[in-house]
């Protein structure tokens, strides 16, 4: 199975995402922001970072990159896509996911080992978890506050599209403690925490990131 990782100018965790793909035995493929070409991959990760410096709204410029011209229809057609941190912001800006990410309520960048509850264990990227499971994933961002209007939030809750919720304490003022969401089909998932930093013993607070990548691998194998 081939998993693509997009590098935008300013992407930072692209190499980490490629490493995570390799760690579960899939074939990592680098995708370039300037090429509208997904190189035949079976899934795509939009990694963390500060695409184009994020001097405008986070993800607002990356949305217009040529690679997104190929990615958006593919995602709408069911291609598994995972957006991590800046990748989540890009997915929201691209309207592949509802809502938006704003400045943390304490107005600082925050890097912590964050407790999360898995709310939906049936998406392309979470099927190797169990619903209700508590996990620890690295969280690090300055603009991670998830917001949406009340109707959207109610709909997300009702349809099971809230995938992760912050446990213990809300680190950034996200509405309803939401840390990650999915689209209606369950193939596109975005979250602020960084599963790619939790895949190797000794290099992160847990191994709780691995099921993200094994989930999508299993889905491709069974598809």
């Amino acid at each position: 199975m081939k998993v693509g990782v997009v590098t935008f100018p300013g992407s930072l965790d692209d190499r980490d995402a490629l490493r995570a793909v390799r760690a579960v035995g899939a074939e990592p493929v680098s995708l370039w922001h300037g090429d509208a070409d997904l190189k035949g991959v079976d899934a795509v990760i939009l990694p963390g970072g500060f695409s184009y410096g994020d001097y405008l709204r986070c993800g607002a410029i990356a949305r217009f990159a040529p690679v997104m011209d190929a990615l958006v229809p593919a995602a709408q057609g069911g291609l598994p896509v995972l957006g991590i941190c800046n990748g989540f912001q890009v997915l929201c800006e691209s309207h592949l996911l509802p809502g938006a990410l704003i400045r943390n309520d304490h107005r600082k960048f925050n890097c912590v080992d964050q407790r999360l509850v898995v709310e939906n264990a049936s998406t392309a990227w979470t099927s190797d978890f169990e619903a209700g499971q508590e996990i620890t994933i690295v969280l690090k961002n300055g603009e991670g506050g998830y917001v949406a209007d009340e109707a959207t939030l109610d709909r997300l809750e009702g349809e099971g599209q809230v995938v992760f919720r912050y446990a213990a304490s809300n680190p950034n003022g996200s509405y309803r403690d939401i840390a990650g969401v999915t689209n209606e089909r369950g193939n596109v998932v975005g979250l602020m925490p960084h599963p790619e930093h939790c895949i190797e013993d000794g290099y992160g607070p847990s191994l709780d990131g691995l099921p993200f990548f094994t989930s999508v691998l299993r889905q491709a194998v069974s598809a």
Binding site: K108, F109, Y203
Partner: peptide
């Protein structure tokens, strides 16, 4: 102070 710094990026921090 230190939580305002990313200590995990690159995935090599032991």
């Amino acid at each position: 102070v230190t939580d305002q710094y990313d200590r995990y990026v690159m995935g090599n921090t032991a």
